[in-house]
Design a protein around this nucleic acid. Structure first.
Lengths: 254, 254
DNA sequence: CGACCAATTGAAACTTTTCAAATTGTGTGG
DNA sequence: CCACACAATTTGAAAAGTTTCAATTGGTCG
């Protein structure tokens, strides 16, 4: 349909720096010894920048690499066999994109740039080989994968039993924490995705997202100007995100 | 409180080497054929049977092993820091319990038997050692973990945008598929968990679960007697589970 | 049998979606 | 650079779905 989402994956392998890229890429939750990181240098060339709406990879393409986000952001969209488009994740600088492809041999969703975005490619074959020689790397991959499993599990449940207010509060706080971990301000950040993307991700209609955000502003919890987010009252947001508005959760299940 | 949920985990560590068994043991999504469960006996000795409400492990205990379910069933319950109890998964014979603990060093939830249940213990250290020598095994672990990530991601989104009717239909079909994979009838099976457990898992109140199930019966899609489930009209259930009752999904997110 | 827990059912309150329309923002071509 | 078209956002009001509260039934176990 729209050719603006064509795949642009032209590799420009002339980049030497990338040391920082590796560090950030592979040290998201926890670091890898520096001497091991050095070994990775050869294998992660940054790709040509993606423009907004460009796909890093498309659902169904054979899995070859993980990608570490250097700058910008992406969303992952999975199209189900019933032809629904589900936003299954957002990726910020430092995130590894493609982890959920390892099992499939193919990417189970498309990664689409939300803005101008640059990534490093980490060919999985090479990672695999390296992981034999570098125990810490193997451990790291295990950890990241397992971490994902756990995060998804918990996030899912947390969202399911919650009101729009709580979901959105949690979303904002999660984003805030991401930025904090990366050394950016947790109080003020830009989110390139649309209200529709957020709603899709959280299981809410875009109208509900808009309304809820408006209500937050009226209560002076946040100030939002387009894609510019300003968290003013983290405490209140935290309280909201924890309020278990619906049952099914707090009870003793047996 | 109730001492019936005491931890029973007696390890017997005499391990004979059997690569195939380990490999098969790791075939989580597919489940483990019944005849192979016997084979596991040598390497991964079954623990003393758990009685209903017994915990296989408790949230926070140091992670040491994965467990393969031999018979019976369990639920995993995670208690959040806000003291909510979330049912994060159900495990049937052939399932691997504990995958999401690898990242944490500790089990991120408690595994509680829903009925009399037997499991085999798979010490993770051994798996880890073996994975060094057996590339296929390492691949298998990667794959299973990644599969989980993907499944969780998709399941989450699918549930989030759906009505109670669709969620429950999907739940039943998922269970049905599990039983089919294990060689049991996909049309008739027993689920030991309570309506409350199901509701908690799906993000619905137990009343809604009950009502929806009743409605299914009125339309003759199923026959349910307590924990005895009878799926009569799989097609209709499938149709229901696919109906995207709410927006946020079907739209082109950009 | 009685106590207790799970399941069912009803009715009111509440939340979210849906539909519709107005407004703002953005990028492109003249 | 402006104007236009198109996308994203906001807002309103009615409809739909879910939860909550409350009461009842059914089953199990000591």
């Amino acid at each position: 349909m729209t050719n603006s989402t064509r795949v642009s994956r032209i590799v420009s392998r002339e980049v030497a720096d990338c040391q920082t890229c590796h560090l950030r890429a592979l040290c998201v939750p926890q670091g890898l010894p520096l001497k091991d990181i050095a070994e990775l240098n050869g294998i992660a060339p940054p790709l040509a920048p993606l423009k907004k709406h460009d796909a890093l990879f498309r659902q169904g393409m054979p899995f070859t690499s993980l990608f570490a986000v250097r700058s910008g952001s992406l969303k992952q969209v999975t199209t189900t066999y019933t032809n629904e488009h589900l936003v299954t994740g957002f990726f910020l600088p430092g995130d590894l994109v493609g982890l959920d492809a390892i099992a499939e041999e193919c990417y189970p969703g498309s990664a689409v740039a939300l803005e101008t975005t640059t990534v490093c490619e980490l060919p999985f074959e090479r990672l695999n080989e390296l992981s034999l020689r570098i125990p810490a790397l193997r451990q790291r991959i295990y950890r990241d994968l397992s971490q994902e499993v756990h995060n998804e599990r918990l996030m899912q449940r947390l969202l399911l039993n919650r009101t729009a207010e709580a979901r959105l509060a949690r979303f904002l706080l999660t984003m805030s924490a991401s930025f904090r971990r990366r050394g950016y301000s947790p109080y003020r950040f830009q989110l390139a995705m649309t209200r529709g993307d957020i709603g899709n991700y959280l299981g809410l209609s875009l109208e509900t997202v808009s309304r809820t955000l408006t209500r937050y502003q009226q209560h002076e919890l946040v100030v939002i100007r387009g894609h510019d987010f300003h968290l003013c009252d983290m405490k209140a947001l935290t309280r909201l995100s924890e309020a278990c508005g619906r049952q099914g959760a707090a009870q003793q299940p047996s």
